[in-house]
Nucleic acid binder design. Structure first.
Lengths: 221, 221
DNA sequence: GCACGGAATTTTGTATTCCAAATTCTTCCG
DNA sequence: CGGAAGAATTTGGAATACAAAATTCCGTGC
């Protein structure tokens, strides 16, 4: 892909380009990002790149060390536990806020996600079902009508995306069922039920994920 | 102040310089940040400045519009409600985690904050007492031993600091009392009590603050 | 053959200069 | 007084330069 033909500032495009490749795993954890390489590949000068890097760092996608450049963040087991704790709290908040404001249009959107996941499941496409489930979460977040919350969660989810890919297929049917329960609670405006279902949903994926990752992750720093 | 004599990268120093001045209110909300001015004032080139700006934006301290530069974030009433919601959730999580791990050294630190606040109060120095109370919150955050949580809360608190200054003196004695209760719950490892006290503590400051701000804040965007 | 030390190379951090495009300011005219 | 044309400012970005730090490479000695 050549950058420069579309809209927005180059810095933003570089940011998005790198973020996508980190989330997708193409730039694997630990990979060093060498400025010259990226500038050459994207055909941009160092200025927009060096504006993109601090953003990526602020969002936790890379770590930079003085005079040693940037590398893709390598999550430790502890990092992931921290992520789960925070995500748990914020997903619960999102569910609570969504249930407090069960807007019909947003509800219809959630329904779409659920039926998409279910039909993908029927067709045997676990991949599509997982994607629909990710979209469901994002929609709940949007439905919370708290832009700050949504903005905070985005990079957290991005950082966990590869983890989702590793582990989400595990119990995708369970996830779909939980989503349907959560949807019903939100639709009915049952704030406390939505909160506890959201909590259970996130918490439920925790131990299995951590167990799966225990041996592939680096030790804590 | 002249930048350049201390350690760390210039970008970081510029970032911190601007952040401090935004938090302190010296750079008031809505103020435009003109690159040339800042570069001249700090005697740095545009490069480190342009690396600092995306960081400030990622942390919510400034907003930038393409081709129109950066300005200090002007919180709307809705922004502040969103902040309260998120802070509520995260402070509760921090209290919960701290109570789950009542480390003696950290507890001693909390005690120090409490007695500092109380003695400042006895001396009639509301200002110092408020500072000690802010430090107390930060210590609880640190005690949660969740670096992600701590990192997320920092800019949120920074953005609300001027609000604290406006409203904190109001019921500083109530705050101290609530802190003491929270401290006891954490010390005793009473996770649920700590959580509900933290919730009440944040939620309690909410309506009074919003009422105070209702007429000075700009309308929602 | 391998560890070690130092030189050569690469990379980052920052400055400077330059330019186009967009925005803002000024000024002049109706 | 309002508005439009032109001037000045400002941002977004490129190219180049260079010192300092880090990394790589290589030759030497063991």
């Amino acid at each position: 892909m050549t950058i420069g033909t579309t809209d927005r500032s180059l810095s933003t495009q570089v940011y998005e380009f790198l973020r996508e490749r980190i989330i997708s795993g193409e730039l694997e954890p630990g990979r060093r990002l060498v400025e010259r390489e990226i500038c050459e590949q994207l055909n941009v000068s160092r200025i927009p790149l060096r504006e993109a890097l601090p953003q990526l760092e602020a969002d936790g996608f890379i770590r930079t060390m003085p005079r040693r450049g940037a590398m893709v963040t390598q999550l430790t087991l502890r990092d992931i536990e921290e992520l789960f704790d925070v995500r748990e709290s914020l997903e619960v908040l999102a569910a609570r806020l969504a249930a407090a404001n069960p807007d019909p249009i947003a509800l219809a959107g959630l329904e779409t996600r659920i039926s998409a996941a279910r039909s993908a499941l029927d067709r045997g496409s676990d991949h599509e079902a997982a994607a629909a489930n990710v979209a469901f979460h994002d929609d709940v977040l949007a439905m919370s009508r708290n832009r700050l919350l949504h903005g905070l969660m985005q990079p957290l989810n991005g950082r966990m995306q590869w983890l989702f890919r590793m582990t989400a297929d595990r119990d995708i049917r369970v996830q779909c069922a939980e989503h349907e329960g959560l949807y019903a609670a939100i639709r009915d405006g049952n704030v406390e039920l939505a909160a506890s279902l959201a909590f259970a949903h996130v918490a439920g994926g925790r131990q299995p994920s951590l167990a799966l990752l225990a041996d592939v992750l680096p030790a804590d720093r």
